[in-house]
Computed example of a mutant assay.
Amino acid sequence: MKNTKPLLFPSDYDGWGMLKLPWLFWGVLLLQLRTFAVVMHAVAFDNVHFSDGALFIALSPGIPAFLVFIFFIQPRQPGPYHWWGLWCTGRWLLILGGCLHLGWQFFSWIQSEPVAVMSVCFFIADSVALWWVINSQRLWACFTAEYGYPSFHYRKRDY
């Protein structure tokens, strides 16, 4: 039977006793937040005007990543961890965002939008990022109370 516990070392924890996020997490977050940059650039510089519903639909693939970023700021500060339950849903939000990005690109290709090299590159990058978010045990441990929350930290236990 496969061992599902991640291999964690003392260097994997920060000074507050929380599990450090893998550096690929930040790449996935930036990849999923690109919709905010594209939409804001279109509104600011290209004079594209969205109706109320169209703006929400255009921003919808990036909203889960934005929520994960907001949840990152709150629970990882020293002190009481009121937002920890929301932080634990962050991995599922990243999976949802990855599925939305892949579905958005696939839907635009079905609607006979021309297939550009950049859209294919982003489709491949989104596919790899979604695969990593689903299969990374270290990322799973960061979003799990047993490994990521400081009260479960091994240094604070008495042996």
Rank of each mutant, 00 (worst) to 15 (best):
A44C: 11
Q74S: 13
G85W: 04
W104S: 09
V28L: 04
F72K: 07
V38K: 11
I63M: 05
L93D: 00
W109L: 10
S51M: 02
W26D: 06
S51T: 13
C99D: 05
C142W: 00
L24H: 12
V48S: 10
V48M: 09
V39E: 00
L93H: 10
A129V: 05
L130Q: 04
Q111Y: 00
F122K: 08
E113N: 12
R76Y: 08
F25L: 05
Q105R: 10
G79H: 03
L55F: 09
F71W: 13
L29N: 03
I70W: 10
F69P: 05
F123P: 03
T35C: 14
F106E: 05
V48I: 14
T89E: 09
Q137P: 11
V68P: 00
Q74Y: 14
N135V: 07
W104Y: 09
I57L: 13
R76W: 01
F56E: 09
F143H: 11
Q137V: 03
H41C: 14
L96R: 07
C88M: 12
N135G: 10
K20A: 00
D126A: 14
A141S: 05
I73Q: 09
F71E: 03
V117E: 06
A58H: 05
Q74R: 13
D126Q: 11
F71S: 00
H41S: 15
I70V: 13
A145W: 06
C88E: 10
D52M: 10
M118V: 13
Q105Y: 14
T144F: 03
Q111L: 07
V117G: 06
L33T: 06
L130H: 03
W92V: 07
T35A: 15
I95H: 05
T89N: 07
F123G: 07
C142D: 01
L67C: 11
M118C: 07
H82Q: 13
V38I: 08
H41G: 15
W23I: 06
S127A: 12
H82D: 13
D46R: 15
L94Q: 00
W84D: 02
H82N: 13
N47E: 12
V68R: 06
L102V: 01
G62D: 05
D46K: 15
V133S: 04
D126P: 08
G62L: 04
G27Q: 02
T89L: 06
W109I: 05
I134M: 14
K20I: 04
F122W: 11
S136A: 01
I63F: 02
L100V: 09
I57R: 11
A116T: 15
E113H: 15
L33S: 04
Y147M: 01
A125R: 02
S51I: 07
A145M: 12
S108G: 13
Q137H: 12
L30K: 06
